[in-house]
Structure formats: C-alpha cells, structure tokens
Computed example of a mutant assay.
Amino acid sequence: MGIFSGLLGNLSEVSVEDLTKQYGAYLMPNEVISTGFKLVRDSFVITDERIILIDHQGVTGKKTKVSTIDLDAIYEVSMESGGTGFDDSELIIHYITSPYYKANNITTAAYRFEFKKKFNIQSLYVALQSAATQNRKRING
C-alpha cells in the first residue's frame, strides 16, 4: 500500500535522523530539522527557518531541484482533511515570493501538499498557521 499511496501523490512522514542523513548538506549553519515528509522520490523538510522542497527529476532521479519557502514569508495556510473514498488530506501554503515583504508590488505563490487521508495534518496546520498569523502581524504592524 505504501508505494501505491506514493504514486497517488501522498506524503509519508520520515524520521529527523533519516532526513538529516539524506538532506543535511542543504542545511544552513545552525539550522535544525523539525520534521519532514517523502513521496516516492520527492521530499520536503521543515526546519526552524524554512521549508525545503526536494524534487528528484529525470528517469534516474539523480538530477535534483531544491527550492525554499521561508517560514517568515508564509501569510496564509488552509487545510482539508480526507473524507470518505479516495479523498486525500491537503495543506495549502500561501507565501510571499518578493524579496521585500512591505513593497508596493509584492508577488505571492501557493504550494499544495497532499497527505495520506489517515495522516493527522492538524498539528502541522496549527504550527504553520501560527507562523502565518505572526508574520501578518509583523508585516502589517
């Protein structure tokens, strides 16, 4: 069932130790991994500073694209829990992509994560929404 779930786009939680071994080279000095998730080849890691998106590309997966969403750029988070049938749980993060958050013409983006329906995303939602609320107060204050 694990590979089948992975092929459907669902993420599975991975231990911090495994994430550190595999993706520790992408960490900034003094950055600490909090949690992380893995698809069949792709992963994302949440640290105390950012969300690191790891996209293994190509047939062999040796080509890798690494992107970052800074935690202080997140301004909105929404979640949808899994229903009956094949519905997955999902989390959508809206974030600012402009280098200056208080600029007149900021640019934004959204990123959607899908989890197994049985995975409880509420604690992840609450943590990211707490950051988003603090960010909005800081940016607009």
Rank of each mutant, 00 (worst) to 15 (best):
S78K: 14
T84G: 11
L71Q: 00
D87N: 13
G61W: 06
T64G: 06
S78R: 10
G85C: 06
V77H: 02
P29I: 06
K62S: 13
L91G: 04
V66F: 09
Y95V: 07
I69R: 00
S15C: 12
V14F: 08
A73Y: 02
E80K: 13
T68Q: 14
I51H: 01
N30C: 08
G24R: 04
N104D: 15
P99I: 09
E80M: 11
D18W: 01
Y23Q: 07
L71S: 01
V59H: 07
D18K: 12
A25R: 05
K38A: 13
K62I: 07
V16F: 02
I93Y: 00
K65Q: 10
T84E: 14
I54M: 04
I54P: 01
D87R: 08
G61S: 10
Q22F: 03
D88F: 05
Y95D: 08
D42W: 05
K38W: 05
G83V: 03
N105S: 13
K21W: 06
I52P: 04
L19F: 09
D18G: 06
I51A: 01
S34F: 05
Q57G: 12
G61K: 07
I33D: 03
Y26K: 06
S15Q: 08
V59M: 13
S81D: 10
I93W: 00
D70N: 15
Y26N: 14
L39S: 14
V16W: 01
S89I: 01
D72V: 06
M28N: 13
Q22C: 11
T68A: 09
G58S: 08
G82F: 02
P99D: 13
E31M: 09
G61M: 08
L71N: 01
Y101W: 07
G61I: 06
K38D: 14
P29M: 03
Y26E: 15
I74V: 11
S15P: 12
I92F: 03
L53N: 09
G85Y: 04
K63Y: 15
T97V: 15
L91R: 02
K102L: 12
I93K: 00
G36I: 09
Q57M: 14
E49M: 10
K62N: 10
M79W: 03
K102F: 08
T35L: 11
F37Q: 05
S34I: 13
Y100N: 15
Y95F: 15
S98V: 06
V14E: 15
F44Q: 01
I106M: 10
I96N: 05
H94P: 04
L19V: 07
S43G: 04
G24Y: 08
R41A: 11
V16K: 14
Y75W: 11
M28A: 15
D88C: 06
L71F: 04
S67G: 14
E17P: 01
T20H: 15
G36W: 04
V59P: 10
M28D: 15
K65L: 07
E17C: 03
I69W: 02
L27V: 08
E49N: 09
Q57W: 11
G82P: 02
I51V: 13
D70Y: 12
N105Q: 12
V66A: 09
A73K: 13
I46Y: 00
Y75N: 10
N104F: 13
L39Q: 03
I51D: 00
Y23V: 06
Q57D: 12
E31S: 07
M28P: 00
H56C: 14
L71H: 00
K38F: 07
D70C: 14
S98D: 11
V45G: 02
G36Y: 07
P29C: 05
M28C: 11
